[in-house]
Write a protein that binds this DNA or RNA. Structure first.
Lengths: 242, 242
DNA sequence: CCACGGGCGAGAGCAGTGCTCTTGACGGGA
DNA sequence: TCCCGTCAAGAGCACTGCTCTCGCCCGTGG
């Protein structure tokens, strides 16, 4: 009974994986808008109706792909930061490594990137499964910044932000309380790093700066450095060394 | 002949405008993905095939809407900057006014915003008609920055960017040559103002910071200020005054 | 004055889509 | 042995973008 059910479950999981794999390849080639359930059914030699035993709708399949994409970018960021840290890199070098890794993944998987960081049809509510993977990138950034603050590498902002804190108590709890002086506004500033990263990546990927830059990669480094200056983090400048 | 042809042309232009208007309302309600030519035709009391006399394809209609959206955001930015300038605002205040205006337009027209600054299906090449409106926002930014540099309000960056210039000669020519000392890297830095603006706007609009911030509007101002610090522009801090 | 021709709208039709419903085959549990 | 849940298949619905052909109307040239 248990063995049989296990077999059933395993076969089912395998087919789910096969469907996602086929959908992912089709996604990579034609994009999300043109992802067709019937096409993946044809690819797998199934009837289109059979897919509905595994995914209740096309959007559900797309959501599964979104979760995978979030996980992929999170993993890429984490291992880039790990590698830079074991290499003995400074916080600035580590964050630059993360930025480059995320952008690298984005140019290698433009459709997947657009799926997670592109326009999500404003009426669409991201399913709860997506928030955990989405936090991974934030966690990487938090670790870099906290290390920098701990070792005193983080410059104190010239103009402290006035007014009340702007982050949710829940977020405050996750990071272990508000940072102490002189970094009271670190949280508010830090998210600028995030928006700069995905904003710049999107801007370049979506072609808004075509015919404007002579070297996208070099300028991306510059943009990350300029944005990081706003939070007091010094990224390495100059030609790529790694 | 001329009068008759004029009448024909006018009728045609009116119908084109009606089609675009209907498409725009549908776009605003259901989004670009669900924009249906047949629905537009039904709305106008036409046969769906009749629309093809005015737009060769659905994408062409969408492109027309994209151009309109670019124009709208460009106009909004221009008039916000004009108003702030005639009000006697500093360059920082003027740029903040532009940022707020663009974001205000984005939240008022999320689908249109997503159309121009969201994911453009990476295989898609923006038609040439879109580059001129797209430059309007850049021009507004350039004017603010050049004014700031001219009046000496622009802080000199602490860490000058090394290496060769990264902007195209064509861009250099448009802005009237490379800026002089000590602002040699102003061009390279300035574009992060742009990516910060649309990156932050998208990030907020697309819900990536939901449940993270207590006050989106206030944090948006902070984010713009932090990003502007990287280019040496001081935005006003504190509660909204205007 | 009249026939021609070009722009116009309507309709039918094609190939494709997401999704639902019903039907029939298979195999393990009672 | 029978039964029942699981599965895949097929037909079908409503819809899409798009094409083609058909008549209509109106202004123009002969």
């Amino acid at each position: 009974m248990t063995a049989a059910q296990d077999l059933r479950a395993r076969a089912r999981a395998d087919l789910v994986a096969a469907i996602k794999a086929s959908a992912a390849t089709q996604l990579a080639s034609v994009g999300a808008a043109a992802l067709s359930l019937r096409a993946v059914a044809r690819d797998l030699g199934l009837a289109s109706s059979a897919l509905y035993r595994y995914f209740p709708s096309r959007d559900a399949l797309l959501t599964a792909l979104i979760v995978d994409a979030y996980d992929a970018v999170g993993a890429v960021a984490e291992q880039a930061e790990d590698a830079a840290r074991t290499r003995g890199g400074s916080p600035g070098e580590r964050w630059l490594a993360v930025c480059r890794a995320v952008r690298g993944w984005a140019v290698a998987h433009p459709h997947e990137y657009a799926l997670v960081y592109g326009s999500p049809v404003p009426g669409y509510a991201a399913p709860a499964d997506t928030v955990e993977p989405a936090v991974r990138l934030s966690r990487v950034m938090a670790r870099v910044l906290l290390d920098a603050a701990g070792e005193g590498t983080l410059r104190v902002p010239a103009r402290p932000l006035p007014g009340p804190r702007l982050v949710t108590p829940a977020v405050l709890e996750v990071v272990g309380g508000a940072p102490g002086a002189p970094y009271e506004d670190l949280l508010e500033r830090s998210f600028v790093l995030l928006t700069a990263l995905v904003g710049t990546t999107s801007y370049l990927l979506f072609g808004h700066l075509k015919e404007v830059l002579t070297d996208d990669d070099a300028w991306f480094d510059v943009a990350m450095a300029v944005a990081a200056e706003g939070v007091g983090l010094d990224l390495p400048l100059g030609p790529r060394t790694v």
